[in-house]
């Protein structure tokens, strides 16, 4: 296993799109994989992001790690802003 280093740029996986299961005899569509948009009543699109956790440091967090728990996902414009 490669030891994780805190490099300056560590791309997170971003949205995780399930691999389409190839159907025999049907060639996969050439179009890019359809992005699933978030909607109420539908499954939340999974993703992986690098994160800072106070007391733990840097780690990668996947939304699906929190299955079985209620989650509040909060987006905001930026650190060190005012509201």
């Amino acid at each position: 296993m490669v030891k994780e280093v805190d490099s300056c740029v560590q791309p997170a996986a971003g949205p995780l799109v399930p691999e389409p299961t190839p159907v025999e005899g049907v060639s996969p569509p050439e179009e890019e994989v359809k992005m699933v948009m978030a909607r109420v009543g539908k499954e939340a699109p999974d993703f992986e992001a690098s994160a800072y956790v106070a007391g733990e440091g840097f780690k990668n967090v996947k939304l699906s790690d929190y299955r079985g728990q209620w989650v509040v996902l909060c987006f905001y414009p930026g650190d060190f802003t005012f509201v």
Partner: peptide, 29 residues
């Protein structure tokens, strides 16, 4: 890229606007 999927990414400003999602234990919004 995550904000885009959740419909909260403002590509002009390059930031995610204030979006808040309640997700249940089954992973449903």
């Amino acid at each position: 890229r995550i904000g885009t999927v959740y419909g909260v990414y403002d590509e002009d400003a390059g930031v995610n606007i204030r979006g808040r999602f309640i997700i249940d234990p089954d992973g449903v919004i």
